[in-house]
Nucleic acid binder design. Sequence first.
DNA 1: ACCTGAACACCGTTCAAGT
DNA 2: ACCTGAACACCGTTCAAGT
Lengths: 194, 194
Amino acid sequence: MQLRRSDVLDGAIAILDEYSLADLTMRRLAGSLNVQPGALYWHFPNKQTLLGAVADRILEPLDAPVVAVDWADQLKELAHRLRDALLSHRDGAELVSATYASRLTTTQAREKFVSAALRARMPRAEAELAAYTLLYYVLGQTVDEQSRIQLDSVGVLTEESSPLFETPDATARFDFGLQLFIGGIHSRVHSYGR
Amino acid sequence: MQLRRSDVLDGAIAILDEYSLADLTMRRLAGSLNVQPGALYWHFPNKQTLLGAVADRILEPLDAPVVAVDWADQLKELAHRLRDALLSHRDGAELVSATYASRLTTTQAREKFVSAALRARMPRAEAELAAYTLLYYVLGQTVDEQSRIQLDSVGVLTEESSPLFETPDATARFDFGLQLFIGGIHSRVHSYGR
DNA sequence: ACCTGAACACCGTTCAAGT
DNA sequence: ACCTGAACACCGTTCAAGT
């Protein structure tokens, strides 16, 4: 019954979903796989690398091709797919933003954001910066949203401590920031002529 | 030689600046204060609370009144002051975004961003959302920037792995995202008439 | 090649007991 | 009121040795 690399990742995702990121320790993971902690280090050089691989797993849904054609719709689609991917695993947003300190850089998901920005007729350098800007927003917003879900389920949040309770649902709030960002690109691109 | 709450915070900041956030452990901090680890727990209920207090310290420069009068200039000023505050301590951005999961909510710094957005003639609900959007951007961007400084100083970064090397300095990149955001507010506010 | 056993060098937190 | 001493229940990582 050999332990495969993908088994380790499956086990990690399982702990994440059933418990939390804090519970995702090398020892606990090893235990759930009926193996000694040291065994994991044959498959991964260290915990950080393992978490990186888990993050890649979480972001896999982003590999699907973009269906929208308009650049703004493409950005919206990508942003929503990123958010959905992050929200589909407990602490997914936190894990990804923790391990992607400078790894968003390398990911091909970033490339897709850049492509959409290029379609808006931005010069490459600007499109890259714009892509980062949007990524920071999506990550920050989603980490916040997800942590609030957690606190909420534990019943820690009073109405007072969550001053956004009057605003609509989380998706609408997400879309607001997204729209702000798209409006920003729009006005930027329009300013080129002048 | 009684240990005061503020001495503990001073010691924490010192470890942060000389070493790193990873080295800021309760035991190490106690050691640097010539005290047993348990002593810290008389002053702070737990590590998270202590880090929260350190974060507040780091953000103190934001308490100074805003000098700009135009809403866009106010937002720029605030964003830059936030970034500067985060960059003025090693791992400052990481510490603040880690402890401010949902604490930016409570901070009065957020209020200042909201005020500036209100001055742009946004309705309150939108101004709050816009403030969050900008905060997420500043935090994300600055965490990234600071982690790159760290990696750079250790010499881990090749030109290949830092695809932004061709773009100007970090401040210019920061300003680009900021401008995008301000343009977004602008076009949003303008759309009210229509 | 893949894993065990066992150790190393740490953590955060608690709490009786001291002063 | 404030801190020590000492423990509890953990961590990530390494590495000789086994199969």
